[in-house]
């Protein structure tokens, strides 16, 4: 029986490329990985937004209106609904003068109980150091 931690680090802008969407969908895929693994084995995902990537966490995204696609907000809320650990870099939201109020911090509107956490980069580094594998998007 083993648990392997995978850290999904999102540093890409939303919508400019597919990268951050793929980060979220791959992280969410951790919820069904057990079908390929031995009993008791599993993957523990951690999703962290750093640099430009923190802009993926902005509230009230209008992707369906603008592009006709699901928003990254919806994917992020699905991640919280599935109890994924979500970290947002404190220093980087400061660089964009963003406040907690402007960010997606929970998924209460769809029944989620887990909240995102704004943390110093040093805490994200600790998560990366303790992860078995790192995936940068």
């Amino acid at each position: 029986m083993a648990i392997k931690k995978i850290a999904f680090i999102v540093k890409s802008l939303p919508y400019k490329t597919e990268a951050s969407r793929l980060a979220l969908t791959h992280a969410i895929a951790s919820q069904t990985v057990e079908i390929y693994l031995e009993d008791g084995d599993n993957v523990e995902p951690v999703l962290a937004f750093i640099g430009d990537g923190v802009l993926n966490c902005l509230k009230d995204q209008k992707a369906m209106n603008a592009y006709g696609v699901t928003s990254l907000e919806q994917h992020l809320k699905n991640s919280l609904l599935l109890d994924l650990k979500v970290l947002i870099c404190k220093e980087d939201i400061g660089k964009f003068s963003l406040s907690e109020d402007s960010l997606i911090m929970d998924a209460e509107d769809i029944g989620g109980e887990t909240k995102a956490n704004i943390v110093p980069f040093s805490e994200i580094m600790k998560e990366m150091e303790s992860a078995n594998h790192l995936m940068f998007f």
């Binding site: 083993a2 392997k4 995978i6 791959h26 895929a29 951790s30 079908i35 390929y36 084995d41 993957v43």
Partner: peptide, 12 residues
């Protein structure tokens, strides 16, 4: 689906 990749990473 994407879970295949994560499962592969598990044993890599």
């Amino acid at each position: 689906s994407m879970d295949w990749y994560l499962a592969s990473g598990f044993s890599a």
